[in-house]
Design a protein around this nucleic acid. Sequence first.
DNA 1: CGCGGAGTTGAACGCATTCAAGTCTTGTGG
DNA 2: CCACAAGACTTGAATGCGTTCAACTCCGCG
Lengths: 259, 259
Amino acid sequence: MSEMTLQQAWPDVLTPAEAQLLSDLQGPPETFRPRQQIVRCAQPVESALYLSSGFAGRYRPDRLGRRQLLAVQVPGDYVDLPGFVLGHLDHDLDALGQVVVRGTPYERLQALERQAPGVVHKLWRISLIDAAVHRYWIFRIGRLPGRARIANFFCEMLLRLYARGLCGFDAFQLPLSQVDLAEACGMTPVHANRMLAELRDEGVCTFAEGAVHIAKVPALFQIGQYTWDYLYLGADLDREIRQRLAGRGDSATRVAAAG
Amino acid sequence: MSEMTLQQAWPDVLTPAEAQLLSDLQGPPETFRPRQQIVRCAQPVESALYLSSGFAGRYRPDRLGRRQLLAVQVPGDYVDLPGFVLGHLDHDLDALGQVVVRGTPYERLQALERQAPGVVHKLWRISLIDAAVHRYWIFRIGRLPGRARIANFFCEMLLRLYARGLCGFDAFQLPLSQVDLAEACGMTPVHANRMLAELRDEGVCTFAEGAVHIAKVPALFQIGQYTWDYLYLGADLDREIRQRLAGRGDSATRVAAAG
DNA sequence: CGCGGAGTTGAACGCATTCAAGTCTTGTGG
DNA sequence: CCACAAGACTTGAATGCGTTCAACTCCGCG
């Protein structure tokens, strides 16, 4: 795994021109430390945030203070379109590792909405993909047993990062603790630990030091019963992923597809 | 519980004029029988559907064919904005009871988007509320034990229907079987049955013949650890609900607030 | 040196699943 | 009219997956 930089976050949704247009509206980068709160539940939101680097998590605590992780946001995500449109969030948004966000003031996006409604439609599209991811999390937590939940979650993270050119097909950064992972998958930290041990002992994958290393990608997909139709990645990426899973993909494939 | 008709589905989002504008674009009503598929996974969607009466469910099957219910749509919901914007759905949409939908052809909504971008923004808002509901389902299934999951789910259904004037505060229609309920709450039908028996024996609520009758609303909310901030109902309804929970609400309150 | 957070492992418990049998209702055909 | 099948709901008993409680290691840091 190597550190890679984010080129185009939404290749199948935004044209380069649109991405540039949105980028130009953004304010200066703001950094957040690990565990720092980015947006607080119920607080008024006055700008739309773009996650230019790092990972963020959406949390809802239960009555006893134990948290459920509702979503993991990766670099290139627009992390508070819900807050922007609805006025406030119904949950907390925290930095997972080190995070850099850039905000677009409310008024600028409203102005853009008048002069280029097409871009707003694209943002709508982006938030609907987020919703599709939410629905898939419901499926994952509701139907899959523990080990499959973890495997399935890793598969999603792999593809979402891979789709942005942020990792290869064998490893990726994931700045979560085992407690975070457990909160994401709806289980206890102890059990998450045991399921990770199983995957490790089977030689499927490891999770340590904020990164996942996958030795057997097809096995991970199989264990997690993973499908990625809900990510709406587009036909090119879809084919590419299927080729890699079939073992016929090499690094040249990616470059060829991108060119 | 009495049969009630849907007046204004989105009082806090759409103005009456906007609701009328959208209604005028809609095609003729189409009816679906219970269990009939409304939109099939991966099929092209060419019109945006409005659920004018009845309930619909979004489903994703696992590898063994067992299903997870991802969302329940109630009268007044726009049930395939995701399909409309993304081109197809990543899951199935089935009628739960008897259903009537009205479709808005793709082109008409695109035309509306040019002449009245404000309405499109409102539709965006509606789909973001849907996403907030999805997130809450993740919380419910991931963090709550069985009995609380059922109670919590009933609370959500109660408020979503109450907010549309489709029920009082003591009972509501819910055309699901116990199997459906189990699929919605991520548990087995047998266990759903036992949890329902507990709630019944405690005198909290009953679920039979496609309807929920609630004897002790505050107890139901307490057992389900329910909060409804994620529904974005608006300040008026919010106050009204809190009053009813505190036992100070009577039927006159509702009328006064609506006038 | 001691503290705290993160990870690991063992053992006991219990919630939920699984398997199974039974009732009740509904609809269908003899 | 009754026999029968199918689906929804209910209940009992055994199993097991996941939780809970607890102890311990490792490591970074004050």
